[in-house]
Write a protein that binds this DNA or RNA. Structure first.
Lengths: 203, 203
DNA sequence: CTAGCGACCGACTAGTTGGTCTGTCAACAT
DNA sequence: ATGTTGACAGACCAACTAGTCGGTCGCTAG
């Protein structure tokens, strides 16, 4: 009786899982089809080439990722008007969220494409850049406003500090996968939080 | 008149370059052969399977990587007996070294295998784990001894702080590649240095 | 009733890909 | 001289891979 999930969605979901697990080049269209219970015809009906599937799943991932950050910032802002507090709330939230078993940790889909140098094909680079930019600007905003009341935070460092979010999270995903230790992620975000606490200390 | 580089070495060198550029799965044996100017016969004479080549290049990379860290620590120790100073020397050195154009930045070969989930084939996981362990223990050593004179550095945080080196460097490689901005690397290592300076401040 | 259309099916294909196999050849021991 | 061995050469192959194509089916507008 239940309405079947549309094939396109099933394909994207299956591909996201497989590509996250084994990389893009190593993920065959046939493998995606099997997991998604879809046919060759359906696949190439929805995606002109495999690269277009790549773009679709990155787009899908970036949408989730962007929505998460926006949600956490909104939550933080509803709790405090001090931008430094908002930023620390976001950081602590990520720390909490990341305390899940390794096989439930999403890991970053974009990394696969970055490391396989697929950024210039089928416009995959565009959503990736957009996502990075999004983190950079939203966190820079918070830092800039927080900097008003904290003189130890230098203006010119702000973009790099903002980027340290992306860097820490992605680096930690990597270390977690390499060591098989899921707790790495939240512990590394914890280091980032500590750094921010030291930078944002009022005095 | 110059002695030809042994084929095996040429294959490893070519493979390191190609795999760093496009990932392991996307690097074909034939492509390696072309760059290395070697034959199929030569290849499978030296490596039973493609996966064994994978292990060989990771081994090769890890050897360089380990040697670099050891060298920097030794240099630092010849300059100061304060372990905190040694650690900051190492960090500043990495910061300096990383200020090179993007196409000369080595990027981390291990990441490819981590993200392609190749760690359990052909024993590739072993050198990777060994390398991570090496960074963790060597930096933890420095931190532990530095902690004696700095009470703000908590013992239980030391392994995570040590791991933050790996995390920052790998994360920054990623961001640099994604944005095409080579300066990211040294700027992110700069954040790490700033964090350490705050943690290691005497008072 | 039917013509058209978008969604989907799956057998098929052209080109790769990792790996095999039969040799060649120089060095060295017997 | 002759046998052996290790380093390589390159034609060949079976399996796989992205992509194609002719066709089916249900829906809807005329």
């Amino acid at each position: 009786m239940s309405v079947e999930t549309p094939v396109r969605d099933r394909i994207v979901a299956a591909a996201r899982r497989l590509v996250t697990e084994r990389g893009f080049a190593a993920t065959t269209v046939d493998a995606v089809l099997e997991v998604a219970r879809a046919s060759k015809g359906a696949f190439f009906h929805h995606f002109p080439t495999k690269a277009d599937l790549g773009r679709a799943i990155v787009e899908d991932y970036v949408a989730d990722d962007t929505a998460l950050l926006d949600r956490l910032i909104a939550e933080g802002e509803s709790r405090s008007s001090d931008q430094a507090e908002v930023l620390l709330y976001v950081t602590r939230s990520i720390e909490t969220i990341s305390a899940v078993p390794l096989d439930e940790q999403p890991s970053c889909l974009m990394v696969t494409f970055i490391y396989e140098n697929q950024l210039d094909v089928a416009g995959i680079g565009e959503p990736v850049t957009r996502s990075i930019e999004h983190w950079r600007t939203r966190i820079s905003e918070l830092l800039t406003r927080a900097a008003r009341t904290r003189r130890s935070l230098r203006r010119e460092d702000i973009p790099a500090i903002a980027d340290h979010f992306f860097v820490t999270i992605e680096g930690a995903f990597l270390l977690a996968r390499a060591t098989g230790d899921a707790s790495v992620l939240s512990r590394q975000v914890g280091q980032l939080r500590r750094y921010l606490e030291l930078l944002l200390a009022k005095r």
